[in-house]
Each structure stands twice: as C-alpha cells, then as structure tokens.
C-alpha cells in the first residue's frame, strides 16, 4: 500500500469528502494560503473554488457562529484553527451555541460542523501557541472530541467526522503531521467513539493521547529490552469515550499510566484516571498514575521547554517506579528531538 503522512491524510480526507458531497467546505485563517495549514488544505481552492475553500477575517467567535449557521441551513463546514490557543476565541459559540442547539430543539436537528485545531509545540512556541485544552471541550455535553494519532486513523476519523451530523472537534498535534503510514487510497470511515490498541502487552497499560502515543511507543521499545511488556491504548476519540476498551486492558494488566498531552490539573487524564480507578478498583495492583505538562505556562527557552514536556523517558521512569524496577541507564537511548525535522519558525 502507498504511504502517506498525517498532513497528507487530512488533506486527502477533506478532498475526497468535498468531491463526494458539494455541501462540504473548508475555511479558516490562512486556509488557502501558500503554507496551507501545514499542507493540509493545499490545492483545495484550486480544485474546488474559492466558495468552498477560503480565508477569513481574524474573528474566530464570529466565524464559528458562521459555521453553525451554515451547518444548520444545509452545508457541512470544516473550520480550521492553526492553533488551539486561537480557538479559545471560538468558545463562546462552541460552548453556548454549537453544543446545545440540538438539545434545546429536542434532538431532531443536525449540526454537521467539524472544527480542526492544531496543537503547537517546539521552536519556542511559548505560552500562547502550545495549548491542547482537551478537557475544556470534553467537559461540554453535545461536542464530540477526537485526537487521532496515526495517519490512517486521522483520514478515517476525519472522514467520519465530516459525515457526522453532530459537531466534532478534531485535535491535531503539529508534530504528528510528519508521521507516515500505509493509508488506503479510497475513502473510508474509522468510527468515532472506538478506541484502538496500538500495541498489545501484559504488564502495564499506557493510555496515550495524541503525540504521547509516539513517546509511549518509544518507551515500550526501551522497556521491551528489559523484559517489560507495555500495552498502549489510544482512545482516539475522547468524547464519547470508548471506556470498555480501556477498562478491559487495565483489568488484564492491573496497572495503568495515563500519558496526556496536556496539563495534568483538571485535565482529561483526571477523567480517565477516575473512570479507570472506579471500574478496575479490585484489579489494580497500583494506583493509576498520570503524566502530563508541568503546571506552568509553556516556557519558550528550549532548556526549560525540555523540562515542561513529558516524553518517553518520563513514561519509562513512571513504569519502572510502578513495577518496582531500578531506574535503567537510558544514556544510549535515542529520544525524539523535533530539531531533526523542525527548526522553526512556526
């Protein structure tokens, strides 16, 4: 099968859905420009015309209301934010209008709106270009929230989101855009609300979110050499959550680390840890452990940024502690550094 990266998979999902359904359109700040949201919207204006792929003024609140209005009057909008931080300006519409319109009209109406938001990281993104804020949105009834990790998942899940008659927010970690995988060429759906075991294992479950699944895989490789078998579960959809998959896994392994790509305090990891603790209580050999960002604004300087973000090393140390293993010497290990791919500026 041909290989495609995550950014290309997003582009392909949108292009195929725009081809299939003339009601689908995509818009947002910078969408049709040369840089085209990391290539995810490249060529769509040329292919489908400026009425179906267009730029907007810098007014996220208004343009989200605009998407709602278009969605409830017959179109299927995809609104793109190049950073989650900018989507904060859209929360009035998302939380006050988009999320409750179906409910307060008795469940009969449709709001086929997709909002894509990019999680930034690296090269000094700093405090205002690096947020995830998953739990700000999973907290709200009436929104579906997805955070695909792999290229094949993002294509199928975005396709499902575009075809869904409810509002869906899709979180895309900026570093995942490079991830290549075999991705089927024809359109397909990966159903929302269904998680995935990224790697089967016996000793401990890592529930990873977004980029942290990449770190979890690295950690699992390192620990494998020491005879520790790590199972990685990617919920993929955060709301509605595939709780059964996670609970079954933790019941099997008896141990769980939640590796969130976000702050820990009041984060989505708290929701996961609470549910796992409740549902797996008698089967847990250790308390559920959570890993996430340091509870500070994201620092710009590289050395502090290194301290701010958890990575494979954090996961390895967490698992060692949980299993009562001595901390291994990790000097020879090859940890991910974004400078391999990314030297700024954005």
């Amino acid at each position: 099968m041909r290989k495609l990266d995550y950014a290309g998979a997003i582009r392909e999902a949108m292009a195929q859905e725009m081809e299939r359904d003339p009601r689908v359109f995509v818009y947002g700040i910078g969408v049709p420009t040369w840089s085209s949201i990391f290539g995810t919207t490249k060529g769509l204006t040329e292919q489908f015309g400026p009425e179906r792929c267009f730029d907007t003024p810098i007014c996220e609140d208004t343009m989200t209301g605009f998407g709602l209005g278009a969605a409830i009057r017959g179109l299927r909008p995809i609104h793109v934010h190049i950073r989650v931080d900018f989507m904060i300006l859209a929360t009035n519409q998302l939380l006050n209008m988009v999320s409750n319109y179906i409910y307060s009209t008795g469940g009969k109406l449709k709001v086929p709106l997709v909002v894509r938001a990019v999680v930034g990281r690296g090269w000094g993104q700093g405090a205002q270009h690096s947020k995830s804020l998953f739990s700000n949105f999973t907290h709200i009834p009436g929104l579906k929230v997805i955070a695909p990790t792999t290229a094949s998942d993002v294509k199928g899940m975005l396709t499902a989101a575009i075809r869904d008659d409810n509002p869906v927010i899709c979180f895309e970690h900026r570093w995942l855009y490079w991830a290549e995988e075999e991705v089927p060429e024809e359109p397909y759906e990966v159903p929302l609300g269904v998680g995935r075991i990224l790697r089967p294992g016996r000793d401990v479950t890592v529930v990873g979110l977004s980029w942290m699944n990449v770190e979890a895989r690295l950690a699992a490789d390192i620990l494998y050499k020491r005879g520790v078998s790590v199972e990685i579960v990617d919920p993929r959809t955060l709301a509605p959550l595939d709780e059964d998959l996670i609970v079954e896994s933790v019941k099997r392994t008896g141990r769980c680390i939640v590796a969130d790509c976000d702050w820990v305090e009041s984060g989505f990891s708290a929701e996961l840890a609470a549910r796992i603790s409740e549902k797996c209580f008698g089967r847990l050999k250790a308390p559920v452990k959570r890993i996430g960002f340091a509870h500070t604004p994201c620092p710009t300087v590289r050395e502090l940024e290194n301290e701010f973000y958890p990575n494979a090393r954090t996961i390895v140390r967490g698992i060692e502690e949980m299993l009562g293993l001595e901390a291994a010497n990790l000097d020879g290990e090859d940890f991910f550094s974004h400078e391999r791919r990314f030297r700024g500026p954005f």
Partner: peptide, 9 residues
C-alpha cells in the same frame, strides 16, 4: 454571526 452563516448557506 449564526445568521451570517445562514446567509452564506
């Protein structure tokens, strides 16, 4: 703004 989106549709 929702009305503006409806106008677009």
């Amino acid at each position: 703004p929702v009305a503006v989106g409806a106008g677009f549709a």
